[in-house]
């Protein structure tokens, strides 16, 4: 899987949502990603303060 969230690590801070250029992320009770919108650009991984998101470029 090219995009991965570790929900145990995630703090629900919303930092990844704020930087997502394609509005692919949404924070409900946990982080939700819209696969159709996501371009796997990786900024969410960069913004995450706790290393909860992993993006592998295909």
């Amino acid at each position: 899987m090219a995009w991965n969230i570790n929900n145990d690590k995630c703090l629900r801070c919303g930092g990844c949502v704020s930087v997502c250029p394609t509005a692919a992320l949404e924070l409900r009770d946990k982080l939700i990603r819209d696969e159709k919108l996501c371009t796997l650009c990786g900024v969410c991984e960069k913004a995450c303060p706790v290393d909860a998101i992993k993006v592998a470029k295909q």
Binding site: G14, G15, V17, V19, C20, P21, A24, L27
Partner: peptide, 19 residues
């Protein structure tokens, strides 16, 4: 900043090098 709605309406999101 944590909602995609601002992006959906006005294309606003935060630049990762500015946060």
């Amino acid at each position: 900043a944590e909602s995609p709605l601002r992006n959906k309406a006005l294309g606003v999101f935060s630049k990762v090098n500015l946060i």
